[in-house]
Design a protein around this nucleic acid. Structure first.
Length: 904
RNA sequence: GCCGAAGUGGUGGAAUUGGUAGACACGCUAGACUUAGGAUCUAGUACCGCGAGGUGUGGAGGUUCAAGUCCUCUCUUCGGUACCA
């Protein structure tokens, strides 16, 4: 007899110890077995694990364990995305060092993850802040530099004053810093850039070759890459040699272009205005725009404004003399930084033209409405139509005119067809300390010199004191900065003091996991060939663009360098939803933690000060908003298995989860129900004859007892359902419900009652008396005893499979029961249950009867009944007859195995 | 503005190709067993109605014998993106 309650504490630590001591989750390359690489996005070691981690890693662990039971050689690693700004901020705040802070956090979080019982091969753990790791990143950087895949340029960058660093465009959210939320300014600095745009076309193309990714994500990536097909057109500038080149997607509107707009940063703005009476005004405007925090006042768009540069250009099609403006809505980063403005057919140009009194010339006439009048229009017309005011193209459909006009331009040399991308090169320089140093040396005579391979890694000095203002100490660390030039020996050289964007580390960590200890290369090629690509990647949808796009790009870099043979790192992607909770704000303390709120009836007050608390919107849990639940509390109270079960049962993985732990008690109850069920089943199986009765695995038709049959069918249906839910959609919530149903059915069958043996034998006796089939499998033994054994065998089959089906979800619990049921550990290595097709359906089926589409009755009938029999039985039904009444039956629809609908 | 997803009981959520709406849980109600119960078990629980019955998947239309599911329009919420020429 077992304890009558499951006690997580002892059981969980017992099995964690067992797994560790027996190296259960250690894996190695085994060419004879099919591999499965399951990866969850590694965490930033920010302190403690949070609910988002728990959810993400639980989902991953279930799949890893499931695949393992299905015979795959599963790689399931874990590590730390350990470089990054929070370490520096925390170090300053707590007077510690980023390294110390980071390693401490890693230790805490590793301990927490181990407590969750995840099946990681901990021998493969990596931390990106270790020189053994970033060494290879530096190595790759040097290789890329050799192949001109990385370059340096001075450019305007997004600068966060608060964080004292540049931000990638992707790290600017609505003109605010993605981390601290401060406004982003523009600053000119020398930066290193990866030529990701060289792969824009390929990255886009392969978006359609990733069937295992959610459409949502590939659509977001496509939009981010932002390919547009158009034309580049050159405009002569009056009285000058140089030309202005524009990019346009609407070459068909060329004749309607009445003025030109240059981005304020456009190099020609200064030269064109020089010496004109506009010069001062232009300079002032450019100055104003550059100072303008690209956001400041925030969400509203700026009003369109601009200044005449004093120059004119010539429209190559119409010959019109077009004033050249510089305008705030022209962006240097897109296209060529110059826009041919067609006010009649572009809303921005229209607004600008109206503001500055510029001509509006209609060149596209909608086909089915009154002719447009440039002077009277109130908004731009952007729809299709036929060309007017366009010389020999008049009357032509505007779509065809796009090609025609471009072809003509190509002939005259004034233009060509071209493609423009929104994606820009990836700026990776960060004026930060806690990151991988960029391995180059600046020499006064040689210029930029890469650090020689045998001198790598350029170690980040771990003893540097952080500057109070949050800036990087590296530029002021002479022993780091000052060095000799590897090329000429000049002693006046200095190291680059910038570090790499931390997205660089996360762009290849998954490949490092394949051979984490390889110290002769970035990775072992055989290991990578065996494990990569990742079969299933799981992580938050917030990384849909940045991390995933960079990783895809990195694989192309490695591929181009001949280091790997594939291009796409992640075959299947699951983006799990966020864990959310409502925020609470107190007038005194601002945001407060849920545990500091006192909820009485409908009134919420602050426990600290007693003031009223405003309950805000439900948003993603975040430390700064304090709407967090610490998984530790749940873990301490219920243990890992119940926490895991609850996370999975609450909602399907891709959906956002509004946290509410009301249901956790139910999960605890369920686990105990299974615990007791296993107990009584094993008692049953061992009782009587004394020897244990083996699980029944035969055909359904060989069973005699109705109860046994029902259970046997239910068990096979459950195996099918659970397998399919995991395999097809990772819908663990419905898989768990299915097991709950089977457990409920076991209880309902009476197997668990105190005197199960007696009640079963009487039930069997009852069956015997009315069912002659029994005799056929009696084979000399006592009929009643045979039936008893039969139902015990079925019960044994059920409970065994319940434990197996639950084992990936609640592994400690399953191990414990598995052992108590007399099996040898570990359940981890057991084969996943399979179901018998011939045991899925009973010999009776339920038919529902509708009259005019409304449910009126139902009945059971033999599965082999033909349509006519079913129809007759339905029509004969008393309730059905009542509803037909004296109306005439117009039609009877019989749906196979399902229903009958009688139309009257 | 544009792109995408989602709206189902008091709550989380289920529902093959259109075919019993509300599985499974939480919560609640009643009962049983207990010295006790925040344990366990049994029964009930979409809404209206005593009942027969009627109404119900954000809203309005439509297709169909039959619509949560398909079509059209619309509202709301949440994500992504935004002067992209």
């Amino acid at each position: 007899m077992m304890d009558d309650r499951y006690s997580p504490d002892q059981v969980e630590s017992k099995w964690q110890q067992y797994w560790q001591e027996n190296h259960i989750f250690k894996v190695s390359e085994d060419m004879s077995r099919e591999k499965y690489y399951l990866l969850e996005m590694f965490p930033y070691p920010s302190g403690k694990i949070h609910m988002g981690h728990v959810r993400n890693y639980t989902i991953g662990d279930v799949v890893a364990r499931y695949k393992r039971m299905n015979g795959y050689n599963v790689l399931h690693p874990m590590g730390w995305d350990a470089f990054g700004m929070p370490a520096e901020n925390a170090a300053i705040d707590n007077k510690t060092h980023p390294a110390a802070w980071t390693y401490e956090n890693i230790a805490t979080m590793r301990r927490q993850l181990k407590k969750m019982g995840f099946s990681y091969d901990w021998d493969r753990e990596i931390a990106t802040c270790r020189p053994e790791y970033y060494r290879w990143e530096q190595w790759l950087f040097v290789k890329m530099l050799e192949k001109d895949m990385v370059y340096r340029k001075e450019s305007y960058v997004n600068w966060c004053e608060h964080c004292q660093t540049v931000l990638a465009n992707e790290q600017v959210e609505a003109d605010l810093c993605w981390r601290c939320g401060d406004p982003v300014l523009q600053k000119k600095l020398f930066q290193w850039f990866f030529r990701i745009t060289d792969h824009a076309e390929d990255l886009l193309l392969y978006c359609d070759k990733l069937p295992g990714w959610p459409d949502k994500v590939t659509v977001m990536q496509k939009n981010w890459i932002g390919k547009s097909i158009g034309s580049e057109i050159s405009f002569d500038v009056e009285g000058r040699e140089e030309k202005i080149t524009v990019f346009t997607t609407r070459p068909d509107t060329l004749f309607g272009s009445t003025f030109m707009c240059l981005a304020p940063e456009h190099p020609m703005v200064e030269s064109l205005s020089k010496g004109t009476e506009q010069e001062a005004e232009v300079a002032a405007f450019v100055e104003k725009i550059s100072r303008q925090e690209r956001s400041s006042s925030g969400i509203e768009k700026y009003e369109k404004e601009g200044v005449f540069t004093g120059a004119f250009c010539i429209n190559p099609a119409s010959g019109r003399r077009m004033p050249v403006y510089t305008a705030n809505f022209a962006l240097m980063e897109y296209g060529t930084g110059a826009v041919m403005s067609v006010p009649a057919h572009d809303q921005r140009d229209f607004d600008f033209a109206r503001k500055y009194g510029l001509d509006v010339v209609v060149v596209i006439q909608p086909r089915e409405s009154l002719p447009l009048d440039g002077a009277a229009m109130t908004e731009a017309y952007t729809g299709p139509g036929n060309l007017v005011n366009s010389g020999r193209y008049d009357g032509m459909d505007n779509k065809s005119a796009m090609d025609e006009i471009t072809m003509w331009l190509e002939g005259t040399g004034a233009g060509k067809k071209t493609v423009s991308f929104r994606l820009r090169d990836w700026g990776i320089s960060r004026q930060r300390y806690w990151g991988s140093p960029i391995p180059v040396i600046h020499c006064p005579s040689c210029g930029v010199v890469p650090v020689p391979e045998n001198e790598l890694p350029v170690k980040l000095p771990e003893d540097a004191d952080l500057l109070e203002n949050g800036g990087s100490p590296l530029p002021s660390l002479d022993y780091f900065k000052k060095t000799t030039c590897p090329a000429c020996g000049c002693t006046d050289a200095h190291r680059d003091t910038d570090t790499m964007d931390t997205f660089v580390e996360s762009s290849w960590y998954f490949i490092r996991y394949c051979s984490p200890h390889c110290n002769t290369a970035m990775f072992d090629k055989d290991a990578v060939n065996y494990w990569m690509p990742v079969d299933q990647y799981i992580g938050g949808v917030e990384h849909a663009i940045l991390h995933l796009l960079y990783s895809r790009y990195f694989m192309r870099v490695l591929n181009t360098l001949g280091l790997i043979d594939f291009k796409e790192p992640f075959t299947n992607l699951l983006t799990q939803g966020m864990v959310c909770k409502e925020t609470m704000t107190c007038s005194e303390h601002g945001y407060i933690f849920p545990e500091d709120a006192k909820i009485e009836d409908d009134k919420v007050t602050c426990k600290k000060c007693g003031s009223d608390v405003t309950v805000g919107r439900v948003i993603k849990m975040s430390k700064s908003k304090k709407n967090v639940i610490d998984p530790n509390d749940l873990l301490a109270r219920y243990g890992a298995d119940i926490t895991r079960l609850f996370c999975l049962f609450a909602a399907p993985p891709e959906r956002d989860l509004e946290w509410n732990d009301d249901g956790v008690e139910g999960c605890y109850r369920f686990i105990n129900r299974v615990w007791r069920l296993a107990d009584s089943c094993m008692e049953l199986v061992k009782s009587g004859s004394g020897k244990e009765i083996a699980p029944y695995t035969g055909t359904l038709s060989d069973l005699c007892d109705e109860n046994a049959k029902k259970l046997y069918i239910k068990a096979h249906q459950t195996i099918k359902k659970v397998t399919e839910d995991i395999e097809n959609s990772f819908h663990f919530n419905t898989a768990i419900s299915a097991v709950m149903e089977l457990v409920n059915a076991m209880y309902a069958s009476g197997l668990t009652s105190e005197n199960a043996t007696e009640s079963l034998s009487s039930a069997s006796t009852l069956n015997d008396s009315k069912d002659g089939k029994n005799s056929k499998n009696a084979s000399g033994t006592d009929l009643k005893a045979a039936d008893m054994d039969e139902i015990k065998a079925v019960a044994h089959f059920c409970i065994k499979n319940i434990v197996l089906l639950l084992s990936p979800i609640v592994p400690h619990f399953a191990e414990e029961l598995w052992e108590k049921m007399g099996n040898t550990p570990s359940i981890v290595n057991q084969k996943w249950p399979s179901y018998r097709e011939d045991a899925l359906v009973s010999d009776e089926m339920l038919i529902v009867v509708q009259v005019n589409g409304k449910l009126r009755s139902k009945f059971s009938i033999d599965v082999n009944s033909n349509e006519d029999t079913i129809r007759e039985k339905a029509l004969a039904d008393e309730t059905v007859q009542k509803h037909i009444g004296d109306k005439s039956v117009r039609k009877v629809i019989v749906v196979k195995n399902k229903l009958v609908n009688i139309v009257v």
